[in-house]
Simulated assay, not measured.
Amino acid sequence: MTTRVGMFGGAFDPPHWAHRALAEAALAQLDLHALHVMPTGHAWHKSRVLSPAAHRLAMCEAAFGDLPRVCIDPREIQRAGPSYTADTLKELAAEYPGAHLYLVLGADQLLAFKTWSRWEEVLRHATLAVANRPMHLAADADPSQAVELDLSAVDIPFERLHMPLHPTSSTAIRAHVHGRSRRHPDLDVLVPAGVARYISEHHLYETPT
């Protein structure tokens, strides 16, 4: 049987419940032998400065480390210069000869996919596995009111991952933490408990970004 390997990259600043649900959906629905969760290194496409890589890596360990067949992969934060998905997929292809590679992402990333550096090369290496995202994201949004993004005009091939819509985002969570008291007693509603503890212990996001 062909080895099936997933790559799930992102800033993970912080990782939240929707990220974990996406990882679980990919593992189950793609029947993955391994899922590499990769915090972004130097994010050339983001205007804001990311939290230090060590914090984001530790939060990924707290968010995903207990899931079977998941590898928290630090290669992008260890790589000098900008991080490009095409380079990482090329490395994974060499590490798993003959494997079927999947790039796991959200619908918002799919809609912007053709702005990525060397996106055609990404498609040569991997199948896109996409979970839809709500159109309007807020940390305290009602999930029952979420409306998914329209992907009908997307003209590149992808496989659909099925999971409930999670109306939250890392941006909204950072804003939520900044607006709350230091203890953030309700933060574990938005992020896994280990991530909530890490944010509080290290006083992350208490100043606006």
Rank of each mutant, 00 (worst) to 15 (best):
Q29G: 11
L161W: 12
R183T: 13
M59N: 09
Y205W: 05
V177Y: 03
L128P: 10
D73V: 06
P68D: 12
S152N: 10
R182D: 13
P14H: 12
T40R: 02
A62Y: 05
G10A: 08
V5N: 12
V154D: 10
L89Y: 08
S144H: 14
H178M: 06
R4W: 03
Q29L: 10
T207N: 11
I72D: 02
V191G: 03
T209R: 14
A11S: 15
P14I: 06
V122M: 13
R180M: 09
R118P: 04
A28I: 06
A62H: 14
L187W: 05
K46W: 08
L50R: 01
V177R: 04
R160D: 04
I72Q: 04
L57R: 04
T40S: 14
A129I: 07
C60E: 12
A196L: 05
P68M: 01
R133H: 01
T127Q: 15
Y205Q: 13
E24I: 10
L165S: 12
Q29Y: 13
P164W: 14
L35H: 10
A26S: 14
L89C: 09
V177K: 02
D73W: 06
D87P: 08
A175H: 09
T3Q: 15
R133N: 04
Y205E: 11
L137A: 15
E206I: 04
S200T: 15
D140Y: 00
A21S: 08
P164A: 15
L50C: 01
R20H: 02
V122W: 12
Q78E: 15
R174V: 04
I72P: 09
A43E: 01
T115P: 00
A141T: 05
L110V: 03
R75T: 08
A131N: 04
A93N: 09
R56A: 07
H178C: 11
R180T: 14
W119P: 00
E76N: 00
L101G: 06
V154H: 11
D150G: 08
R56G: 11
L137V: 15
